[in-house]
Simulated assay, not measured.
Amino acid sequence: MREQYRTHDGGLLEADLPTHPMEQFTRWFKQAAAPGSPTAEPNAMVVSTADAEGRPSSRTVLLKSYDDEGFVFYTNYGSRKALDLAANPQVALLFPWHPMSRQVLVTGTAARTSRQETAAYFHSRPHGSQLGAWASAQSSVLADRTELDASYAELAERYPPGSAVPVPPHWGGFRVTPRTVEFWQGRENRLHDRLRYVAAGDGAWRVERLSP
């Protein structure tokens, strides 16, 4: 099970990169999300955390926004990933854009977004997703599926469509401030391009090429 990676744009060269990694991320993200792109859910990313004892875990979540300050996702603050981040804010992100023979790998630290930012995003969600944030005590053990369904049904009766759903106090965002951002472009014969931005302080970044 091996595929020969090919690129039709000459690969990834240092001369092609802007000075800030988020500008390069924007270029690739727009290509991954463009109409006709073979990449499904380009905002899906693997978030890897470790708890206070160093035990790692990973899961796929959806990127909801990004800017020069970093990458934002939302979750239940009682979930495993949120509890990991409370004990150890070091985090890694992976965007696996396999159909384009590309990956973006990020390391950095996570911090909670403001309640104002969280509320603005929460109220932009579909009504059912707002109810789901209340219904699910994420990562906790359920007796069975009916327990979850009953919780949702009770909330749906309390907050019918068109009614205002309050923001759960136990739910909100994390912003990952990057320390490194690596852009990986697959090339033939496993001679891939790996260009990594490293934070150099005072808002500056240096770029280094890694051996594949």
Rank of each mutant, 00 (worst) to 15 (best):
Q4S: 11
L12K: 08
A15T: 14
P18F: 04
P18N: 03
H20L: 12
F25I: 06
W28I: 09
A33Y: 09
P35C: 04
A40Y: 10
N43E: 14
N43M: 10
A44G: 15
V46H: 02
E53Q: 14
S57Y: 05
S57E: 07
S58C: 04
T60C: 12
L62Q: 05
E69F: 08
Y77C: 02
S79R: 07
A82L: 10
L83M: 14
A86M: 12
A86L: 14
A86N: 13
V91R: 12
A92V: 12
L93N: 13
F95Q: 08
F95E: 07
H98W: 15
P99T: 09
R102W: 06
Q103C: 07
Q103W: 09
V106W: 14
S114T: 15
R115W: 05
R115S: 10
Q116Y: 00
T118D: 15
T118K: 01
A119Q: 07
P126Y: 10
G128D: 09
Q130H: 07
W134D: 01
W134S: 05
S139K: 01
S140M: 01
A143C: 01
D144H: 02
L148Y: 13
L148A: 11
D149W: 00
S151N: 14
Y152W: 10
A153P: 00
E157N: 05
P161R: 04
A164G: 00
V165H: 06
P166R: 01
P169A: 11
P169Y: 06
H170S: 13
G173H: 09
R175A: 02
R175V: 12
V176G: 01
P178K: 00
P178L: 00
R179V: 07
F183G: 03
W184D: 05
R187Q: 15
N189V: 03
R190I: 01
R190G: 00
H192S: 01
L195T: 08
G201F: 02
D202C: 04
A204V: 06
V207R: 11
E208N: 04
